[in-house]
């Protein structure tokens, strides 16, 4: 494997966003790119990352390899990179280590680190293609704010999408709270658009602590996409350049 990223910052932000949710992960490398899939310890949330080969320049992976990496170790090393550094990941065919090289585009500094790999026996889940009842695109910062505000009141949020809009509501010991967003197009600031595509109304309840955790990815993309269907996990997607993505799935709370 040899994969060169123009900005180390991308990998730094991705790992920073998921490191509190999942600890030891396989980075599955093949000629289409670098993928990661991992559940949190409680098996309530699933992280699915895909960094497509096109996100790297150049990208070369001659043989499929799984790099088992502890994310807190990876984060320690990534913190040694300047955000603007060029990052090259390298690994042999049957690697014991992954090699990270940081190059400054402005100076002649070149830093090199190896991280020891681990054998991780990780269950790989098949995620079915789903036609979601509701797909909501909204500013990532807005979603983060709603989750942070509501967790002050309650552990859970009900997300209800209807043709009127999408309503995030919660109730807790001190009282209730709700935020409703309607479809909204801002010609001058399209990054503030809220788009709700609905095939049928849907209402589901989710644990807010996971959603707040997912929102650590807000710095990766201006927009977040929420996809909901009855009785299936919520998909929270941050789209990255070159069709790469960071997706989180969250199992709903069911009952009553």
């Amino acid at each position: 494997l040899e994969a060169r990223l123009e900005q180390a910052n991308l990998l730094k932000k991705v790992v920073d966003a998921i490191k509190d949710l999942v600890q030891d992960c396989n980075f599955d490398c093949n000629d289409s790119g670098i993928a990661l899939q991992a559940m949190d310890n409680s098996h309530v949330a699933l992280v699915s990352m895909m960094l497509k080969a096109e996100s790297f320049s150049p990208f070369r992976c001659d043989r499929n390899i799984a790099l088992g990496i502890n994310l807190s170790s990876l984060m320690k090393v990534l913190r040694c990179a300047q955000n603007e550094d060029i990052l090259t990941l390298k690994a042999d065919d049957a690697p014991d280590v992954v090699n990270l090289v940081f190059e400054s585009s402005e100076s002649d500094r070149l830093s090199e680190y190896d991280i020891k790999l681990m054998d991780i026996d990780q269950e790989h889940l098949g995620i079915p293609e789903t036609e979601y009842s509701a797909t909501i695109s909204m500013p990532a910062a807005e979603f983060q704010r709603i989750c942070r505000d509501l967790i002050a009141l309650s552990e859970s949020v009900a997300i209800e999408a209807t043709k009127e809009g999408v309503k995030f509501s919660c109730s807790g010991d001190i009282g209730n709270g709700a935020v409703t967003l309607r479809s909204h197009t801002n010609v001058e600031k399209p990054e503030l658009n809220v788009d709700i595509a609905l095939s049928e109304p849907v209402a589901l309840t989710f644990s807010l602590k996971y959603l707040v955790n997912f929102c650590k990815a807000s710095g990766l993309s201006g927009t977040v996409k929420l996809c909901l269907s009855s009785e299936v996990p919520l998909l929270v997607e941050y789209t990255l350049a070159s069709n790469s993505y960071l997706r989180f799935y969250l199992a709903p709370k069911i009952g009553d």
Partner: peptide, 14 residues
């Protein structure tokens, strides 16, 4: 508030 479901109830092994 309902019971927290598990991801593996929805996504099978592959």
């Amino acid at each position: 508030e309902g019971t927290q479901a598990n991801i593996t109830q929805f996504f099978g092994g592959s």
